[in-house]
Simulated assay, not measured.
Amino acid sequence: MTTLSLLEQLMNGIGFGLVLFLMAAGLTIVFGVMDTMNLAHGTLFMLGAYFAATAYRVLESFPLALLCAVILTMIAGALLEMSLIRRLYKRSHMNQVVATFGVILICNDVVKYFWGPTPLFAATPPSLSGPVTLFGAFEYPAFRLLIIAVGIALAIALYFMMAHTRLGMLVRAGASNREMTQLMGIRVRRVFTSIAILGAALAGIGGAMMGPITSVQTGMGEAVLIPALVIIVIGGIGSIRGAFIAALLVGIVDTAGRAFIPALLSKLASPVIAADVGPALASVLMYLLMIGVLCFKPAGLFPARG
């Protein structure tokens, strides 16, 4: 275990955490303001990956493919909100979970119909396929650096939107006291639609950036949805700052656990036991992190609602 390997896994954890942040940020805003549990948010992440991979094959330009993916995912998010989600605002969380889980199943079958059941290969742009030398002999993949840069830039943009724009003011007001916001004459339906479109855009960017690293396939949104929900709980429902910090913590803990725990166990036990127990133990680290945080901060690190 060298310093370079530790630094590489730290960078991988930050990159993975920032992708999770793009997923969790939109989800925590939707849940914090609308008080709606939208499990179909993971489907938007998957659609963003499929849209980007398909557009890149046609346009052969990653920026244009990313733009197309974001626009199409925003349209899908708006249609989902106007056709189904707004009918669930006054329903119980159990009804919301069941209805949006049904959307996941339907969308997975729709994706299989149009793109087929086999995973779709998302090519890395040639200009970003090589490594970049950062510190002396330390080289890191250029595309993963782009993910980190995009994640940080979007986190900063979200912070300024939440702190210095009217939409951000309405989001913060709705997260703190939804009833009072409605009584003050705010057009809640328009705000909710804007928030749904914003969350869809973030999920689409996350899926498009994750596609070239992992295979683009049905169900990839659900795999990211679970860590995103853990991030929301750790950071505090409705808090962008909490989602950002929690995403970095979860990304680093999960990546480091999967990289180092099997190797450490192999020194203490047989390789067979290390191969079986190591990945299982690494997969529960983020849940142990969530339990540890909730023991001291039951409402999360930075809850939006007092």
Score class of each variant (00 low, 15 high):
Pro303Ala: 07
Val171Gln: 10
Thr193Gly: 13
Ala153Thr: 08
Gly151Ser: 11
Leu27Val: 03
Phe31Gly: 01
Leu294Tyr: 15
Gly219Glu: 15
Ala201Leu: 15
Met169Leu: 15
Gly77Thr: 05
Gly238Asp: 01
Gly204Glu: 08
Ile240Asn: 02
Arg258Gly: 15
Thr100Arg: 12
Ala173Gln: 10
Leu198Trp: 12
Ala200Val: 09
Ile75Ser: 03
Glu8Ser: 08
Ile237Pro: 00
Leu249Ala: 12
Ser5Gly: 03
Gly13Tyr: 09
Ile234Leu: 15
Gly300Lys: 00
Ala304Phe: 11
Phe135His: 01
Gly116Glu: 08
Ile245Gln: 10
Thr133Tyr: 03
Val33Glu: 05
Val58Thr: 15
Met34Asp: 00
Thr214Asn: 14
Leu248Gln: 07
Gly185Met: 15
Glu222Val: 11
Phe114Lys: 10
Pro262Arg: 07
Gly168Ile: 07
Gly238Ala: 04
Met11Tyr: 09
Gly242Leu: 01
Ala149Glu: 14
Val150Asp: 00
Asn12Thr: 11
Arg241Trp: 08
Ile104Trp: 03
Ala55Asp: 12
Leu170Arg: 06
Ala53Arg: 09
Pro141Glu: 04
Leu158Tyr: 02
Gly292Trp: 14
Ala304Asn: 12
Ala275Glu: 14
Leu39Ile: 06
Leu281Lys: 05
Ile147Thr: 05
Arg258Met: 13
Met23Trp: 12
Ala78Val: 06
Met220Asn: 00
Met11Pro: 01
Phe135Gln: 08
Val188Asp: 13
Val70Phe: 12
Ala49Asp: 04
Ile195Tyr: 00
Arg178Val: 07
Gly32Val: 13
Gln96Pro: 14
Val230Pro: 11
Lys297Thr: 06
Ile231Asn: 11
Met161Gln: 12
Arg91Ile: 03
Val188Lys: 04
Ser239Gly: 11
Leu229Pro: 03
Ala246His: 10
Lys267Tyr: 14
Thr2Lys: 05
Leu128Pro: 01
Met1Arg: 00
Leu264Val: 13
Ala243Phe: 02
Leu80Val: 05
Gly235Gln: 14
Arg144Cys: 10
Ile261Pro: 03
Gly235Asn: 13
His164Ala: 02
Lys297His: 03
Met180Tyr: 06
Asp254Asn: 04
Ser266Gly: 09
Phe160Arg: 01
Arg91Asp: 13
Ser266Pro: 07
Ile231Ser: 02
Met11Glu: 02
Leu268Gly: 05
Ile186Phe: 11
Ala299Pro: 03
Ala200Lys: 12
Phe143Glu: 06
Leu10Cys: 14
Ala203Ser: 14
Gly130Gln: 13
Ala263Arg: 15
Asp254Glu: 05
Thr2Ile: 05
Thr2Asn: 14
Lys297Arg: 15
Leu183Trp: 10
Ser5His: 08
Met184Trp: 01
